[in-house]
């Protein structure tokens, strides 16, 4: 690898990705702006709710959005860790790390927005609802994963141990969900099914349905954009480390 071609090649590669990044960033910004408009102005008030509950219901769009991001992160990091253990390509490990970092923010957003919404609706910040429990446990696993990686010096070992942990830990999340489901649940089931104990439920009208769709798309894009950015950054970090070692 001669010294003149290396930076040029890196630059060429970065440019292609930088373009992709700009495109996805613009799309994300547009989608997020649309979501703000739709959730605050376009969507009609929930008909069967009143007062504070009616206003607070609008948190729902952000809440669902963050949740979409956290679940995406969960799936992508599961794919990333399995793919790393099979292929041993560090790029897959970076996928896992990047999506878990973004997922941590999303899961935090879900929990916080859920708490804010829960207070006026259920009159409590916290309840042992299966979805709430699962997302919070997922958040704790994300944080444990990031702390754990931090403690391992060897790059390959870090990738391998991180992937093993992510794989095992995520397998427990469905079990946590089903266990928590058998505790009494008061979470409104919005999309389908019916929960006789649910409190604060509301019918989804046409404008609400549209807004929900916008939220899902916008937060999916937001996740992709942030993850992609972070993934490239992690790649560069590793490259810098390599070059530093080569110079020494």
């Amino acid at each position: 690898m001669s010294t003149t071609t290396l930076p040029q090649r890196t630059l060429a590669r970065t440019n292609g990705w930088a373009t992709a990044q700009v495109v996805i960033n613009v799309l994300t910004a547009g989608a997020m702006a649309t979501l703000m408009w739709a959730s605050l102005l376009y969507a009609k008030d929930a008909a069967n709710l009143a007062g504070v509950e009616q206003t607070a219901q609008r948190i729902f769009y952000i809440h669902i959005g963050c949740n979409v991001g956290a679940v995406l992160a969960f799936l992508v990091s599961l794919i990333g860790s399995i793919a790393y253990l099979i292929t041993r390509k560090l790029d897959w490990d970076r996928v896992t790390q990047a999506s878990i970092e973004v997922g941590t923010i999303c899961a935090l957003g879900t929990t916080l927005s859920g708490s804010l919404w829960a207070k006026p609706t259920w009159n409590t910040y916290w309840t042992w609802d299966p979805r709430l429990t699962s997302i919070t446990i997922t958040l704790l696993i994300y944080i444990a994963y990031l702390l754990f990686r931090n403690g391992i010096d060897n790059r390959q070992t870090r990738a391998r141990f991180g992937s093993i942990y992510a794989l095992i830990a995520f397998l427990s999340v469905p079990l946590t969900y089903f266990s928590a489901r058998w505790f009494r649940s008061i979470h409104p089931v919005i999309m389908n099914g019916s929960n006789p104990d649910a409190q604060g439920g509301f019918g989804v009208g046409e404008t609400m349905g549209h807004t929900l769709l916008v939220a899902t798309v916008a937060f999916s894009l937001l996740f992709c954009s942030l993850m992609f950015q972070r993934w490239r950054q992690l790649r560069l970090e590793d490259r810098i480390e390599e070059i530093r070692e080569e110079i020494e």
């Binding site: 446990i137 704790l140 444990a144 702390l147 754990f148 427990s172 946590t176 266990s179």
Partner: peptide, 10 residues
């Protein structure tokens, strides 16, 4: 404990 406890929840 940080690794283990969240996974032990079920």
């Amino acid at each position: 404990p940080i690794l283990l406890l969240p996974v032990m929840l079920p």
